[in-house]
Design a protein around this nucleic acid. Structure first.
Lengths: 201, 201
DNA sequence: GTCTATATTTCGATAGAC
DNA sequence: GTCTATCGAAATATAGAC
């Protein structure tokens, strides 16, 4: 659990090095658009070497998929069963935000290969665990929570994705801090948590 | 231009029938995860028959991609060059919203096959035209517009995607109208257009 | 653990009859 | 316009030496 940070300074094991390279290529060219030969070449080894570490190409994808399952686990665990309020949602989102940024590549991987992952999830009976998107979906489906709140919760997640993933390169990288602040501020507005302070024009 | 509605009641040409089937399969299993054999089988013909209507598999994808280019064209054309205000953005978004819903499958296709389309866009010198995402990105990159506004514009697009695509199945289909209203309301809040008379509150 | 083959499978694409 | 039959390419995966 100590070697899977986003940018391994010097990946310990060959297994981790393979995952790092595969992650980059799967993001850039897609899972199906990436061959094992490419991965091997970038590592300076041959295709066959990869099979010592992974049983199949799908196994590599699965290993990367597992990293997503860790995201938000503790934050979600603190959530008691039952109705979720917008206030709780805001807290949850804030906690998950940090993890999303530190695992940005993993989210990019999933965002850009959605169809592949859904097929994987459908065919492999493995992956009993729910990932963060499943958990979110389940919470937002709870009819006990007012529809208005659920819509705004969904919108808030979308807002995060819009600013941090879909259009992130529209903002200068040096503005990261300000972007983060502006985004959190808009989350408050979406969820109606703004404390009646007069908006400045 | 008369036959490409979202759900053709009875697709006129074989060409359209192929596109309809391919669209569904590309959404469900991904472009690379779908073989021409599958498409042909679902249509009750053979692979070879497809090649009478399309020169290649990529051509089928391209034809579907073109449908995206039509979305938001008129709305975007009305936008004068130069700085875009949040108010203009809100108007734009509202106009595009209708089209997004009527072309929902096309957006799903792109959302779920991002890596494939990027590769297509990179390799094919075709597609000189910009699609709606390119246009959005360009507007949001304009440094002449205050960063705060750009972040909120990006967040608003994300909010739309969150409610209408990412988590749409979390809401009952019978609540479509209410979801739409709640979402538009939250867009006003994100963009700070809630006219909150300055005297009150 | 990594290599050099090579096996196996699948798919996109083409040729030519009807 | 659709068929049968087949080609060629590329990718995953395996066998066995080192």
């Amino acid at each position: 659990m100590t070697t899977d940070s986003q940018a391994d300074p010097e990946p310990t094991s060959m297994r981790e090095r393979i995952l790092d390279v595969a992650l980059d290529l799967f993001i850039a060219n897609g899972y199906d658009g990436t061959s094992l030969r490419e991965i091997a070449e970038k590592l300076g080894v041959t295709k066959a070497a990869l099979y010592y570490h992974f049983a199949s190409k799908e196994d590599i994808l699965m290993a990367l998929h597992m990293r997503l399952h860790a995201v938000g686990r503790s934050a979600l665990a603190q959530l008691a069963d039952g109705k979720v309020t917008v206030s709780q949602w805001r807290t949850l989102l804030d906690a998950v935000l940090e993890e999303m940024l530190s695992q940005r590549k993993i989210f990019l991987l999933h965002e850009r290969n959605q169809a592949v992952f859904e097929k994987l999830h459908r065919e492999d009976h493995v992956a009993e665990h729910e990932d963060i998107q499943d958990r979110f979906r389940k919470i937002l489906s709870d009819p006990a929570v007012p529809l208005r709140d659920r819509v705004r919760m969904a919108a808030s997640v979308g807002a995060v994705f819009g600013t941090l993933f879909m259009f992130r390169d529209a903002f200068g990288k040096e503005d990261d801090d300000r972007v983060g602040r502006f985004m959190r501020s808009s989350l408050d507005d979406i969820l109606g948590l703004r404390v009646a302070a007069p908006t400045k024009r």
